[in-house]
């Protein structure tokens, strides 16, 4: 299979102002992974663990502090904005906050049509509007003409989210970062939109980095899932494998917390104590150690290596052999 994107030991540190010494939020710390052509890689993790940052660094909207990014065989780390332009159309991002993703002074049609025009998609304005309309109807935004002339603040959150998604998809990228792109959609519309995204993937063989906190959605969409905690990868595996057979204590906790619609109200939770570790000058050892119910001495002193415990299933945990 063709490898679309590969990240090697990627780092992003944000400096924070503190009197005296300089400290850093290590939002992405030594993360390596790769995405094959047409693959959907899910990213799961707690709020603030660095998912959005990873998506932005990978697409070079933020400058990395170290590591390499290979996109379609080219090393794109460190290249400047102008050179990056050659790759822009091929990698698109759906941002997490749909309310802020649109220029408040532009109508929806303008926001959608301009990037298409700049990237030479569609022969004429009329043609482009036609394409946009079709796509909107598919995403259940009917009647489409009703929405085209509106301003972003005149639409609901879920509507904006779908439009923001369409904007990226219409540019036909070969790599797409979808950051919480269905978080504001109800179950029925979400099903439709997810299926639309899956169809898009199989038509164009686009690879997708699918960031979500909803495990059932991740399970439905993804081929593989990567679990991140405080800027570090904890576990990567095939989606079904990861959910049915989670190895890392953190993954287990995540899965047991997922709300469901089964009648029994109180389910036993695999609880983890303490609050989220923010990756500011993290201590040595495993980042999850302070909350892990099984932590041993070694977990606090030495950082666990990634181990392949079965084909394609990688875990970073001292407790697993």
């Amino acid at each position: 299979m063709e490898r679309i994107l590969e990240a090697k030991r990627l780092k992003k540190y944000y400096p924070i102002r503190k009197i005296g010494r300089r400290s850093y939020v290590k939002a992405v710390d030594n993360i390596s992974f790769s995405v094959e052509k047409g693959e959907i890689l899910g990213i799961l993790g707690e709020s603030g663990c660095g998912k959005t940052t990873l998506g932005r660094v990978i697409t070079r909207l933020e400058t990395e502090n170290g590591g390499d990014i290979f996109f379609l065989g080219n090393n794109i780390s460190g290249i400047n904005y102008r050179k990056m332009k050659n790759f822009r159309q091929k990698m698109q991002v759906i941002f997490q906050n749909p309310y802020d993703s649109f220029d408040p002074r532009m109508t929806i049609i303008k926001s959608l049509e301009t990037p298409m025009k700049l990237l030479n998609i569609g022969q004429s304005k009329k043609n482009r509007i036609e394409i946009i309309r079709d796509a909107m109807e598919k995403a259940k935004l009917t009647p489409a003409y009703d929405y085209l002339e509106r301003y972003p603040h005149e639409l609901s959150g879920g509507q904006l989210q779908r439009i923001s998604m369409l904007r990226s998809m219409l540019l036909k990228p070969s790599f797409l970062v979808a950051d919480e792109c269905v978080s504001m959609l109800d179950a029925s519309v979400r099903a439709e939109v997810l299926n639309m995204l899956l169809q898009f993937r199989s038509e164009l063989e686009t690879s997708i980095l699918f960031i979500t906190h909803d495990i059932s959605v991740a399970k439905y969409m993804c081929d593989r899932i990567m679990v991140i905690y405080a800027g570090k990868v904890m576990e990567i595996a095939d989606a079904k494998e990861l959910i049915s057979n989670p190895m890392h204590p953190y993954t287990k906790a995540l899965i047991s917390y997922s709300p469901t619609i089964s009648p029994q109200k109180e389910r036993e939770r695999f609880t983890i104590a303490g609050e989220v570790v923010t990756p500011i000058d993290p201590p040595p050892g495993c980042r999850f150690a302070s909350r892990c119910p099984f932590a041993k001495g070694i977990c606090r002193t030495e950082e666990p290596e990634m181990k392949e415990i079965s084909p394609g299933h990688f875990v970073a945990c001292h407790l697993i052999d």
Partner: peptide, 21 residues
């Protein structure tokens, strides 16, 4: 609406929305 809700514990069949909009 309830039917289109995906559930972790159920198998991986195609989830469907409600036809129409």
């Amino acid at each position: 609406l309830v039917k289109s809700h995906p559930d972790l514990r159920i198998g991986n069949e195609l989830i469907k929305g409600i036809p129409g909009s």
